[in-house]
Structures are given as C-alpha cells and as structure tokens.
Design a protein around this nucleic acid. Structure first.
Length: 714
DNA sequence: AGCACGCCGACT
DNA sequence: GTCGGCGTGCTC
C-alpha cells in the first residue's frame, strides 16, 4: 500500500493530479494542506483535496510531493466541502478558490533579484551580445531588479526561459530570498459548541419568527427581506443579535467596499465583536482583522465577496444586502454570481441566508413569495411631491431651474441632479449629413469628453482624440441631443454661480470624491451632480430637490432587466429626498408614462412589480423561464469560436427545447489576452438545470484550453 | 498559467 | 544558420 494525494492547483485546469506522499511528510499533511509539488518543469503550490491508500501504482508516472507549505490554521472540513461544491458548480479547479482563502502570510513568499555578474559585464562591454539578451543585460547593468519588475517592464513571454539560460551561462545571478512569515500566534479557533438558543424568542406574531426558528434548527433556509430600508436595518440587527446568541459567525455581504461604512456605523451597537473585511485592505489591517475573525474574537464580519472565502466555521447567518445590485453578478474575479456562491456556502454550513433589499429583483420576489420565503416589511409613506417634465434638459435649465432650485439653495437646502451619463454629450453629430463618430471596434457612438478634449468609447474605454469636423462633408461637428454630466456641470455653474457644486462619478480622483462628500455633508456644497456612482454614497434623506435627467437612456438596451435597473436607480434617487411635503422630485424625460419611470418616481415597488411581472410572463423571461449566460474563454479566438459552435450544435441536439441566443463576441475582448464568446440560453425550468450542468461538465472536460462558466440570470 | 517545442519568416 | 514571433499541447 502506498499513500497518494489528489492535488488541485490554482491554475485554469479543471482537473486533479495524483502524487505520492513520502512517509516523512505524512504527519503534516491533511485534506486542505498546501504543498509544493513538481509540475512539468516547474515546482508549484498545490492543495491536497484527498488522501488515499492505493494497492498498486496507477498506469502513469507518479511524482512525489516535494514539501509541505506552512498553513495555519487548517481549513475546516465544512469549508473544504464548500470550496469543492463551488469548484464543481463553476467548472474550475478548487485550487483557484483555496488560494483566495489564504490569509495574510499563510505561505512563504519568494522574492527574486536578478544581478549581473562580472562575466556578464565583460560580455556586454565587448559587444558580443545581441538582441534581447543585450537589452536585458543593459537593463540590469546599473542596478539589480526583481524578476517581477522585469516581467512588468519588458512584457516578454520568454523572459523566464531567458533568465534561466543566462544564469546557466554565468552572465547573471538570480538571488532567491524566501520570506518565511512568522507562524501566527493566534489562538486556534474554539471548537463549535452545541447550538443553544434561548427558548423565549418564539414571538408568534413576529414576522421574523420563521427566521428565528431556522436559526435555532441550524439548517439551511433562505428568506427575502423586502421593504423600507430603515425597518429592514432594524430587523436585520435583531436577527444578527439572535444569531450571535449561538456560537457561530454572521456574514454581512455588501456589493462594494464603500457600502461597508454604513453597516459599520449601524453595527456599532453590537460592540467589539464586529470586523470588516475586503480585498483592498492594507497588509497590516488585513492581518489585524483576519486574526480577530479567525480566532473568533469577531464573529460578525461585514464585507464584500472576499468574506465568502474566510475559512471559519460554523457560519450561522449570511445576509446579502442590496441583493438587486448587479455588482454581485459582474464579479470579474469569480466565474459565478456572488449570490449563488453565498447560497452554496450557506447550504454547506447549515446557515440562514437572508436576502435584503428595498427593491428586490422581480424574479427573486416572485419565487420567494411562491416558496414562502418572503418577509415584506412594506414601504413607508412618501410625502414628497413629484413632477414629470417632458422638456429637453437644455430648455428646462434655462426656463425652470432658477424658479425650482434657486430659492431652495438660498434657504440652505441641497439639490441633487442625477444623470447617468459621463462626459459632455452622448455622441457627436454632423448637422449637415447626420454622421456620428463611432468606435472602430465596438461600433457604438463615442462620448465627447470636454475636460480631456477627446472622444471616448464607453465599452472599451479607448479614446480617439478630438474630431473637429465631419470626415464626410467637413462641417463642424455638434454635440448630440443626449447630454452628459459635464454639460450639466457647465450649465449649472453658469446659471447658479453663487453656490458650490460637486460632481460625483466614477473616474474622479478618490481624494476629491472624499473631500466633496465631506463638504456635501457639512452643507458647504449644496449643488450635487452625479451618476449611478453617487447613489450609494450620498446621505439618504438629505436633499430637498432631486432632479433626474433623462433616465430613459438605459431602457433601449437589449437586456431583459433594463426596466428593473432603471426603476431601481430612480427609486434610489427618491430615497435621497427628505421625506416631507416640501421635498420635490423632478424627472425630465420624454417617456413620463413608462412604468419604470412612473413607479420609480412614486417609490412604488408593488406597482412596478405587478406591471413588470406581467411583461415577464408575456415574454417568458425570468421568473417564467431560466435564463443562463454562458461564457467561453481561451487564448485563441478561433478556437473559442469553434468550440462555441460545437457547443451550440451539441446543445441543440441534446436539449431540443433550449433556446439559444448568440453566440456573440464580447466587445472588450480585443484588448484583453483572453478571448471571450458569450451565449444566452433559455431553459424551460430549473429542473433542466442539473442535466444541463452535467452536460457542461463533460463538455468542458473534453475541450481543453477553453474555460467554460455560466451564470443564472434573475 | 507557464513552459517547451516546433514552425516560419527575416536577416545576417 | 540564428533570432524573434507566434501557435499548440501538456502538466500526475
């Protein structure tokens, strides 16, 4: 009998590899242990998923594990199960996720310095070196650099091979320094106690009774908490307190780092057992918070998706705040939706999953209601006025602005202009022939950025300099009808010169944004212009006027959630108004009867929900069908495209009822190393999902060099 | 991913 | 013949 290990690497290879475990390492290796193993010509870190005794050697050559890497504390078994489930669902290697779960300084870091030798200097001087080798030696002739720096600076594919051969020739020396991090002196996590909730909590008439019961039972259950944000906050804190009565952890998940702050203030009443965690913490802070969480000193963790990978156990409650936010779906580093990842963990941990939003996704609300998972706390009454104006924004500014906003500002009130487009104008147009400059790769109209004086593509972000005249008929190009934030700022500064103005949008300098927010909160700045970026950053209830400019621009996008997204934005903007009769919301739009706009303006979620559900039913969109977006990635676009065609054929054969939309090449792909092709699929219902998943798993295993991932849209 | 290998065209 | 620039296949 020989002992073998199944290793998973943090590589885009969805497969485990078998190694022999030498006797002298046996005592230090368990499932989850990080080890160093030979892999082709390299030696890399891998994770032990399984240890097994096999009587005979398998039919291929098996190498030995080389060494054990420090990792403390070990991953809890429940956590490892979660990672394996996650990997199975994402069609990718568990090692990729386990790497995310490594705390600060869990394993040793290797630093390489590349130094020129005397022989190297001589040969450089004598001029017998040519080409890339010469360039490389010249680079390091004065000062030694790290190999990581050279990789960044030179961007050569064959850099490592070159370094190796030059080292062998004795022209350079590579000094390797392993920075062994001190093993952490944190106390090991306490063993989970038997869950014991106080008996007195069963308030039958309380709407959160079922949540308390699920917590007590310690089994997975999901709830959607809808309704007014103030009430929700209160209820969530009550549930968190209850969960803390037991031993485990509570995770509060927010869509972006900036939203941690709000929870941090609220959770203050829970005392010192609260920590926050996200991917952009400084090394020191990360270590500090990590230690607090792992040791169990902090059992409430507020943070972004990074907290999904905290290797602690047991987790009793997971809250997903702002569950409608599509940042959860767009998580670039994850091959699946964060919300689905959280659900997989909650299931594994036997935790309660609490989805929370004042504007839940329509399909989420529908399904929760159908499954008895809905807790709707209801909306609070709105007291503000609402006005819809069909005027064009330029007209409105010159005719009504001073009457509407001027007196408010003089009285010390604040006004917020919401415009969801950056730049000066949405496009340029030739007044004579109608020519519109477009992005040569993405084919969409270019945005005029007056500040930088250039035309920018909002898909691929490339800028194309300024274009003064029409290339067809040489007339002067004019800004088009759809205006952006820069236009608004320019006009407002002219029309209301006595008041300070702040612009809040993505891409502004971080310090400047922070400064602006401080001045807005202190009342020094009374006039705010912002895009979607501004909505979660401004204080709710702090404005007496909110003016929404042309919210309809997103409605034409080919996205079944376009209306829902528009509704949510308007709803969020109304929440910025002080809830009193003197407050007023003004929407400047050419579609005042559009349901998303109308119901958004009234802050009427039930109204919008009923209307939207009707459309979804008619068009067979979620929740009345299962919509999946499927992505194929790889180095070679021809291969990716070929595989996608093959996949479409196979799908059509095996799942005749599945509707296939696409394939489409993603517009951004041209600028990335990895090429991407995307398909949209409509499955009949969720019962088809597991067969679909199994098929994809086999298909992905058979198509090497291509990565597959799919997200369920809802 | 990262590495080796192999093919090809450009340039001595 | 040699160098650099890809594309391709493989890793227990």
């Amino acid at each position: 009998m020989t002992t073998y290990c199944h290793l998973s690497f943090a590589l885009p290879v969805n497969q485990t590899f078998l190694y022999r475990l030498p006797d002298e390492l046996k005592s230090r290796v368990k499932a989850g242990t990080a080890v160093l193993a030979p892999f082709g010509p390299r030696k890399i870190k891998g994770y032990v998923l399984e240890i097994s005794e096999l009587p005979a050697a398998p039919g291929f050559q098996v190498k030995d594990i080389y060494d054990v890497l420090e990792n403390w504390p070990p991953f809890p078994p429940v956590f490892l199960n979660f990672i394996q489930k996650l990997a199975g669902r994402s069609l990718c290697s568990a090692g990729l996720f386990l790497e995310l779960a490594e705390g600060p300084g869990r394993s040793a870091e290797v630093k390489e310095k590349v130094i020129i030798t005397q022989k190297g200097k001589d040969e450089l001087q004598s001029g017998q070196l040519k080409g890339k080798n010469r360039q490389l030696l010249e680079q390091i002739s004065q000062k030694a650099f790290s190999s990581a720096f050279l990789k960044r600076k030179l961007k050569w594919r064959d850099l490592n091979a070159r370094l190796k051969s030059l080292e062998l020739a004795g022209l350079i020396e590579i000094r390797r320094k392993t920075r062994r991090v001190k093993s952490q002196r944190i106390s090991s996590p306490a063993a989970p106690r038997q869950l014991s909730l106080p008996v007195g909590f069963q308030e039958e008439d309380n709407e959160v009774g079922p949540v308390f019961q699920a917590l007590a039972a310690g089994e997975f259950r999901r709830f959607l908490l809808a309704g007014d944000s103030g009430k929700r906050q209160e209820v969530i804190l009550k549930i968190v307190r209850q969960a803390l009565e037991s031993d485990g952890y509570v995770f509060i998940l927010v869509p972006e780092i900036e939203q941690i702050a709000r929870w941090w203030r609220e959770a203050g009443q829970l005392g010192s057992q609260v920590s926050f965690y996200h991917s952009r913490l400084s090394e020191k802070k990360r270590k500090e918070n990590w230690d607090k969480i792992i040791s169990g000193q902090s059992r409430v963790v507020i943070g972004t998706r990074a907290i999904l990978f905290l290797p602690v156990n047991p987790v009793r409650l997971m809250v997903i705040d702002e569950v409608q936010n599509d940042l959860y779906e767009q998580a670039e580093s994850l091959p699946l939706d964060v919300r689905e990842g959280a659900q997989i963990r909650a299931k594994e941990e036997g935790a309660v999953l609490l989805l929370s939003s004042s504007t839940p996704p329509v399909s989420c609300y529908y399904l929760s209601q159908a499954n008895g998972e809905l807790i709707d706390l209801g909306q609070s009454d709105r007291h503000h006025l609402c006005e819809l104006s069909r005027k064009e924004i330029g007209c409105w500014l010159s005719e009504e602005l001073l009457a509407e906003v001027g007196p408010e500002l003089k009285a010390g009130q604040k006004a917020f202009f919401f415009i969801n487009r950056k730049g000066y104008a949405g496009y340029l147009v030739c007044p004579a022939c109608g020519y519109v400059p477009r992005c040569p790769t993405c084919q969409i109209p270019l945005i005029l950025d007056k500040k930088k004086n250039e035309l920018v593509c909002r898909y691929c972000e490339q800028s194309l300099g300024q274009l003064e005249t029409c290339p067809v008929c040489h007339h002067q190009l004019k800004p088009g009808r759809i205006k952006g934030s820069q236009f608004l700022v320019e006009r407002l500064k002219k029309l209301l010169p006595d008041f300070y103005l702040a612009l809040l949008e993505e891409g502004e300098e971080k310090n400047r944004i922070e400064d602006s927010l401080k001045k807005i909160n202190s009342g020094k700045v009374q006039l705010v212009v912002g895009t979607e970026y501004a909505l979660p950053r401004l204080q709710p209830g702090s404005f007496s006027r909110v003016i929404i400019v042309e919210p309809e621009i997103g409605l034409n996008l080919p996205d079944f959630k376009a209306a829902e997204k528009t509704f949510v934005k308007i709803f969020k903007a109304t929440e910025l108004l002080a809830n009193q009769p003197s407050s007023k919301m003004i929407i400047i739009t050419s579609m005042p009867d559009q349901p998303a706009i109308k119901f958004g303006a009234d802050g009427d979620y039930p109204g919008f929900y009923r209307q939207e559900l009707e459309y979804r039913k008619l068009l067979k969109y979620p929740p009345f069908s299962l919509l999946v977006s499927l992505t194929l990635t790889g180095r070679n676009l021809r291969k990716v495209a070929g595989t996608s065609r093959c996949l479409v054929e196979e799908l059509a054969r095996r799942f005749p009822s599945v509707e296939i939309i696409g394939p489409k090449v993603k517009p951004r792909v041209w600028h990335k190393q990895q090429k991407e092709v995307r398909l949209y699929l409509r499955l009949g219902g969720s019962d088809a999902l597991s067969a679909f998943h199994d098929f994809l798993e086999i298909f992905s295993r058979n198509s090497r060099q291509i990565r597959l991932s799919y997200k369920i849209l809802f």
